[in-house]
Nucleic acid binder design. Sequence first.
DNA 1: TGATTAATTAGATATTTGTCTAAATGATTA
DNA 2: TAATCATTTAGACAAATATCTAATTAATCA
Lengths: 105, 105
Amino acid sequence: MIKLSLMNNLFKALNDSTRRQILDLLRGGDMNAGEIAERFDMSKPSISHHLDLLRQSGLVEATKQGQFVNYSLNTTVLDELLAWLISFQKADLSTTETSTPKKVS
Amino acid sequence: MIKLSLMNNLFKALNDSTRRQILDLLRGGDMNAGEIAERFDMSKPSISHHLDLLRQSGLVEATKQGQFVNYSLNTTVLDELLAWLISFQKADLSTTETSTPKKVS
DNA sequence: TGATTAATTAGATATTTGTCTAAATGATTA
DNA sequence: TAATCATTTAGACAAATATCTAATTAATCA
């Protein structure tokens, strides 16, 4: 069973190029908020907001270390999405051709 | 290589509960616009708009058949997304524990 | 041909989203 | 303690989005 709110937050989090870039960055290892912000041509508060959305979705975890906040990737959340996707691939088996309809342009 | 615009459209299309429900519906087989609209408590033009976004992302294909427009699922687009997801799972191998930092609430 | 049906387009509107600057919070250090 | 540094919160604003009703287009049928 897939929790709706989880999927909602997940797709919402992923529906932004900056946030996906942040996830890509974190694949190379943990980073703190400042280090992440440095990589973008965008204000720190904006990055902080993006990090918050990523955290809400569960895609990243934030841990305070002194005055820094460390961000790390949490890919377990993606398992739900992966399962959802794979179920679609399976559903595609019943491809019964009909005449030859025209694609709508 | 993953095309950015494709991923943008894909995540955009998936970032809506109604559109995901439409995809789920189409797993059961093709449906025309009216049949799809019947299933939702929403005006036909709104559903038409959702179908348009799904079509733009490549997730569905629309073929005109008489006065009806048939919509069918196209899961090949999801392959890109699947590949992207799986690459994240791989990246998660380097989990080196440190002390025991506290999660930010 | 004229009426009906299926679907989309147009245009309006309220809500959500991404971004910014300024201010606040909290930790470190001189 | 006071200054500095890292980060977030608050508030404003423009752009994007989801929805609606009314109008339009296109196909079918009496």
